[in-house]
Amino acid sequence: MLSEYLSILIYMILASGITLVVIFANKLLGPSRPSARKSAAYESGIKPTGTARERFHIRYHVIAMIFLVFDLEIAFIYPWAVIYKTLGWAGFIEMMIFLGILIIGFLYAWKRGAFTWE
């Protein structure tokens, strides 16, 4: 089992090595003539105004929170799916109750307009 993750680690190290080489070769080979105008943020050719790290819409937070709930739900479903055939109908009923509770929350979020983007 451990050797499986060792292969992934070796593969990741090699992939990271190639990525590093490619990005830093570009740094060595390319010219470097920075100027104030060149390094200004691109705003369609006009002088950039204000900060770029603007406030953003609250809806992104709502989506992220609902995502967390459902992603955890999926994390519960996977192990259940693997041993489902040995669980039988009892497993089916249990999962339907679990999903039912979550679907009530999902419908509530839907009715409150969490997924509606204007």
Binding site: M12, S16, K27, G30, S32, P34, A36, A40
Partner: peptide, 30 residues
Amino acid sequence: LFFKEDFVPAGADKVLYYLAPGLAMVTAFT
């Protein structure tokens, strides 16, 4: 692309600016 200028915009977070494309590429391979 190897011979293009290695460019960092003003006010950029330099470490993250370099880390982000590398992270995207390595995770795609992984």
